[in-house]
Amino acid sequence: MNRDNLLRIATFFTYVLFQVLLFNKMVLWSKGFAFIYVGYLLTFPIELGVIPAMLIGFATGVSVDIFSNTLGVHASASVLLMYIRPYLLNLLTPHGGYPLGASPKPSVLGFSWFSTYSIILILIHHLVLFFVEAGGFHLFFFTIQKVVLSTLFTFSVVILIQYLFARKKDTR
């Protein structure tokens, strides 16, 4: 177990605890949620295999689910997020390719690249999340409002966390 992995596990607990104890209570106009744990999933190294990535996504989602009694809802959205992440990374490859061993973070690849990358994935994650929660399309417009507002809220908080807690010499 190297230092990076230990740090990732510590980060996992920090993210999940902050999510369930703080951010689950912070809801804008009863429609906007900040699912900050998505930020944890977004910033795994680019070379991470898709199968371990999906398992990590599932574990994170289930941990959040247990606390809010929504078993399976966050898990399904997070697994999908981790499955399509490599495809999107492929599509968004910058000119000259990714630096070796890099993580998709604003400190490494820049603000605008990270915004495109994270907004797309957060939007897909939230679409699945809220429609699975609603159990169908019968509350369509209400759910869409939730998705859009929550995507903006989650994105803002994820960006903020990235800049607040970026390590000084973080090139990876």
Binding site: M54, V62, T70, G72, S76, V79
Partner: peptide, 25 residues
């Protein structure tokens, strides 16, 4: 991916069932 997704959706359905008790709640 399919396996995990089905398992997650199975949990959603099982959890919404009133009579079935699950451990993780």
């Amino acid at each position: 991916f399919i396996l995990l997704e089905f398992f997650a959706l199975f949990l959603v359905v099982q959890n919404s069932n009133y009579n079935r008790a699950t451990f993780f709640n």
